[in-house]
Write a protein that binds this DNA or RNA. Structure first.
Lengths: 205, 205
DNA sequence: ACGTTAAGCTACGATATAGTAGCTATGAAT
DNA sequence: ATTCATAGCTACTATATCGTAGCTTAACGT
């Protein structure tokens, strides 16, 4: 109660409060939220902690986002990582490249550690579930893209079911990353692709 | 503060506190914890809520479990659902039956809705991760069992890799249940099994 | 009958969180 | 220079949680 007399609003003595622009504040907040999301999952993102990390006052956060879920939503939006679709000339080649890229992201991407918490939230929140399956479809749209190209080339039957193939490739990769927690090396990825395609489509003998 | 004078420990007026035995108390607590687990995930299991639902006093809960994680552990332990291994005579038949059973549990089992929260916790807690991959292996041990039988019959090469096959079947099923959130019908399950086994082993033409 | 065990109760303290109120001070446009 | 939007501050309410203390009382074995 010694220096209280200057009242609220007076700048703190020590750490000079850096004053930032509206945009800088939003960016800093989202960056902190993103960081928290990857470190601690959805439930780890609290206004208090975002405020602490970003240096943005909690009241300021509330000026930009009306509620916790609004901030969360923006934070999650940031990292819908769309896999880039390779173009190797052959369907098998494209698929292998795509799968290797996915495996890469699963292992190194900080996104992969936040994913389960989003899935979990989706179990109980229809809005989250909806959002999740939409961004999920976007992320794996590469499978559809390379299949279309292969169909255009005549390499693939026009009625080829991409959905099954996506499940046959992404499934085992996700499975190893989050459920069995086994290694996800390139050899495994290649075996998955071969098994998913079947031995008939190239005649590698 | 009208009836307070009877002091602590006096039974409440209205809802007669049912006095239960030690075993009944533990059972009721675990049942409530299990229920909460499936409804709200790991983070939804709090001592306060378990107490509320089970009618067991919170202090009594602490007499049985030293901490929240201890109760959680016991609650999770309850539902490691081990798939029963079918015996149809052929590897393909066994595998199909096993996969259909798994799909069934994924869709109807309340366990399936709690799983993501456990996976999520495992991302950040090594102990949980260890526990998870152990119970996970137990749950899918049926794959190893039917493969061994097939090997004993000479139906399968002795060096057949069960781990890859498990990933090729459980992966797509899990994928549809938790990630793409698509239908998990029998036809899909059968297609997954066929693709995983390859067309070579039965010659269905 | 009696004593031990353990369930139940109220009441804490500590912490983390969602939000809000009201004020001050600063940066940029005017 | 003045004004205006807005970042930042303290402080608060309300709630949910973990975990503990101390007491009373019912059930059960002897």
């Amino acid at each position: 109660m010694s220096t209280k007399s200057r009242g609220a609003g007076a700048p703190a003595k020590g750490p000079e409060p850096v004053r930032r622009s509206k945009e800088a504040v939003k960016a800093a907040s989202l960056a902190a939220a993103y960081e928290l999301l990857t470190e601690a999952g959805l439930s780890g993102v609290s206004f208090d902690e975002v405020s602490r990390r970003s240096g943005v006052a909690k009241t300021t956060l509330y000026r930009h986002w009306p509620s916790r879920s609004a901030l969360l939503f923006d934070a999650v939006m940031q990292f819908a990582p769309r896999l880039q679709t390779p173009n190797t000339g052959s369907f098998r080649g494209d698929l292998t490249a795509l799968a290797l890229g996915l495996a890469q992201r699963l292992q190194t991407g900080r996104w992969a550690s936040a994913m389960p918490s989003i899935v979990d939230a989706g179990e109980r929140d229809a809005e989250v579930a909806e959002f999740q399956s939409r961004t999920h479809a976007g992320m794996l749209s590469g499978f559809g893209a390379i299949a279309s190209r292969a169909q255009a080339r005549g390499e693939l039957a026009p009625d080829f079911d991409v959905s099954d193939l996506t499940a046959a490739i992404a499934g085992p990769l996700f499975y190893r990353r989050w459920f069995s927690r086994q290694e996800l090396d390139d050899a495994f990825v290649r075996r998955v692709v071969e098994r998913a395609l079947g031995p008939d489509s190239s005649g590698h003998g």
